[in-house]
Amino acid sequence: MEELLEILRDIDDSVDYEKETALIDDHILDSFGIITLISEIEEHFDIEVDAAEMTPENFNSAQAMWKMIQRLQEN
């Protein structure tokens, strides 16, 4: 989880990712931020994020992203 938080802080360090739960809904993380994020998490966690995963529910909070990463690692 700490590794994910570091990736997120690298994209924008002004956000409190441990508390924020509407990263997509409130446009805190925009489409271009998502592009960087996907590249980083695929590289760091050795997963493949496909189009079906691209929902606000999976990216609205660091916790939701972490759950998705763990699920994709198990598959």
């Binding site: 489409s31 998502i34 592009i35 996907i38 994020v49 496909d50 189009a51 995963e53 691209m54």
Partner: peptide, 9 residues
């Protein structure tokens, strides 16, 4: 949702 993200991934 249906063009940008699917192309990105």
């Amino acid at each position: 949702n249906y063009v940008f993200y699917p192309i990105t991934v």
